[in-house]
Design a protein around this nucleic acid. Structure first.
Length: 264
DNA sequence: ATCTATTCCTGGCTGC
DNA sequence: TGCAGCCAGGAATAGA
C-alpha cells in the first residue's frame, strides 16, 4: 500500500527519468485506470513535456507544460520505469526515452490529468514533514473524533495510511481510540515527533514492501522489517513485550500495544 | 462535526 | 483437490 514514504520513494526514483522529457503517448489497457474518459486523458497528455516530478500526500504529481498529471496508486498500484508488461498492466506512458508502466492488480489506481489539480489534491491537508508541531497541535485541538480515523483523514493531514498511522501512534504511546482534542500539548507533540520520525525512517529504508510495493526502479523497500505493531497481532511489542492486539477502527484493521498505548 | 456502511476490485486465504 | 465465501483497504459517497 503506497503511503507517503512509498510515494516519495517512487517520486525520487522516477524524477531523473521523467523530468524534462516529453510524453509521446498514453495507452490505457483498462478504462478504470483513467480518472475520466481514457481517450480525453490520452489526448491531453500526448506531446506534453514533464517539467517536474513531485509528491503531495499519497499522490504522485507530474507538472506538465500547461497542466498537471496526478497519479494515485491506492492499494496495489505499481509504477515502474521500463517495467515488463503483464496481465495487470493498466496503462503505459510512452516517453521519448522509455516507458512508464502502471500495473495494478485490484484496479483502484487512477491517473488524472488536466489544466489544474483534481479536487482530491486541492482538498489535501498539510504535509506532515512540513508541518510545525505547534500547528499540528492546534489542528488536533479542534477535533472531537478519535485519533486514528483523524490521522487517516487526508484533509486533516496528507499522506498517512493504515501502516504509518498505527506505527506513529505506537511510537507516541497513544491509544488509537483516544479523543484527538484530549491529547494535551505534551502528547500531541510526541505524536507529531513520532509521525515525522516514522515517515523519515521509512523513506530512508525505501518504504514498506508488504505485498506489492516497489519503487519506480522496481526495488522493494525494507521498512516492513521494522514495523513494531502493524500486522503483528499476538507478537511481542518491541517496547514492553506485551502481545500486540488487533481491533477494528473505522473499518480498518488496527494494531496496538495494550500496555504502551493505554486509553485514559 | 462525526459516525457507520457501502462501493469499487481481485489474489489469497480459510474451511468444508 | 475443489470451490465458495470472505478478507484486505484508500477514498468517495450516502445516510444517520
Amino acid at each position: 500500500m503506497p503511503e507517503l514514504p512509498e510515494v516519495e520513494c517512487i517520486a525520487r526514483s522516477l524524477r531523473p527519468r521523467l523530468e524534462n522529457r516529453r510524453i509521446l503517448g498514453v495507452e490505457f489497457r483498462s478504462a478504470l485506470a483513467a480518472g475520466g474518459r481514457p481517450a480525453d486523458l490520452a489526448r491531453f497528455l500526448a506531446g506534453r513535456r514533464i517539467c517536474r516530478v513531485f509528491r503531495r500526500g499519497k499522490f504522485l504529481l507530474l507538472e506538465l507544460e500547461g497542466g498537471l498529471c496526478a497519479i494515485h496508486l491506492r492499494m496495489t498500484g505499481r509504477l515502474v520505469w521500463q517495467g515488463a508488461e503483464g496481465p495487470h498492466t493498466r496503462a503505459v506512458l510512452e516517453l521519448e526515452n522509455g516507458r512508464l508502466v502502471l500495473d495494478d492488480i485490484r484496479q483502484f489506481a487512477r491517473i488524472h490529468a488536466g489544466e489544474r489539480a483534481p479536487e482530491a489534491v486541492s482538498r489535501l491537508g498539510p504535509e506532515p514533514l512540513e508541518l510545525a508541531a505547534a500547528e499540528f497541535r492546534q489542528r488536533l485541538s479542534g477535533r472531537r473524533g478519535r485519533i486514528k480515523p483523524l490521522l487517516l483523514d487526508q484533509r486533516f493531514l496528507a499522506g498517512l495510511g493504515n501502516i504509518y498511522a498505527d506505527e506513529a501512534l505506537h511510537r507516541a504511546g497513544i491509544h488509537p481510540l483516544a479523543p484527538a482534542n484530549r491529547l494535551g500539548g505534551r502528547r500531541a507533540e510526541r505524536l507529531h515527533r513520532a509521525i515525522v520520525d516514522v515517515l523519515e525512517e521509512a523513506i530512508a529504508a525505501g518504504g514498506s514492501s508488504i505485498s506489492d510495493y516497489v519503487d519506480g526502479a522496481g526495488r522493494q523497500g525494507s521498512f516492513q522489517q521494522r514495523h513494531r505493531v502493524y500486522g503483528r497481532e499476538g507478537l511481542p511489542c518491541p517496547g514492553c513485550g506485551a502481545a500486540v492486539r488487533r481491533i477494528v477502527v473505522a473499518q480498518r484493521g488496527t494494531w496496538f500495544c495494550p500496555r504502551c498505548q493505554r486509553l485514559r
